[in-house]
Amino acid sequence: MKPDDRLLARRKAVNGLMMSLCVAAAVIAVGALALILAKLVVAGTVALSPAIFTLMTPPPGSSGGLLNPILGSLLMTLVAIAFAAPVGVLAGTYLAEYGRGTTLGNGVRFLNDTLLSAPSIIIGLFIYGVMVLPQGHFSGWAGAFALALIALPVIVRTTEDMVGLIPDSLREAAVALGCPYWRVIVSIGWRSARPGILTGILLAVARVSGETAPLLFTSLNNQFMSTNMNAPIASLPVVIFQFAMSPYQDWQSLAWAGALLITACVLVLNITARVITSRGVQ
């Protein structure tokens, strides 16, 4: 056997070993995550029933549903997006158009990226400090603003990326026709980036709908039906947290049903966003 052959054999052996470790890592990763989803689907579907959508949260020991937390979550998410979307789109547009290469633009871009992965419980503390503490009570508005602050960086980021994708030749053509620059942005930039901007908003909704930590001390919880944004309001994640931590069997199974609902909603939103992006941006 030539020495070269031995070297080759060793290289091949090392390669085989390391590559099988990689495969093993991938299998363990996907397997563990599949286990989590499997448990979620099994426990969730058992507990799912029409009553989930029509009845309110029950006291322990009696049957009920998740109507009030579902409504509360929808309401707060809606308000949050209504605040975050315009600000986010405008800020993202600034970063992609006027702010290119400026100090302010670079600074905002960097800090926005940091906010994107900031712990959401910190956002909750901030809103507690500026809204709940001065007002003296927990409220749906506070919850909605906490969610808005979590949605904002997502929308800023996607808008900037999507508006940035528009070729400069389009902008030049519009400017050459005598458009003021703001009209170039509104009629050319936003219009061609529309699917992308919509994607950002969908991703923000997905991000926000699973958030629990910031709601714990902003919107708190409410075991009764309430759509009053000035009072504590129930939300799906907080109810899941409360019910899952409780010792009652029926509360726990409601928690699984809620968890399945949220996960399904998040996944559907993410997949829709992907489909829109792959269709809209070539």
Partner: peptide, 27 residues
Amino acid sequence: FEPAFVWLTRSAAILVLLVLAGICAVL
């Protein structure tokens, strides 16, 4: 309308900065 629009988008961007500064200050 141009200056107003520039101002509008820039203040939205500055708002992002203010959020971070606000978090720092409040905490």
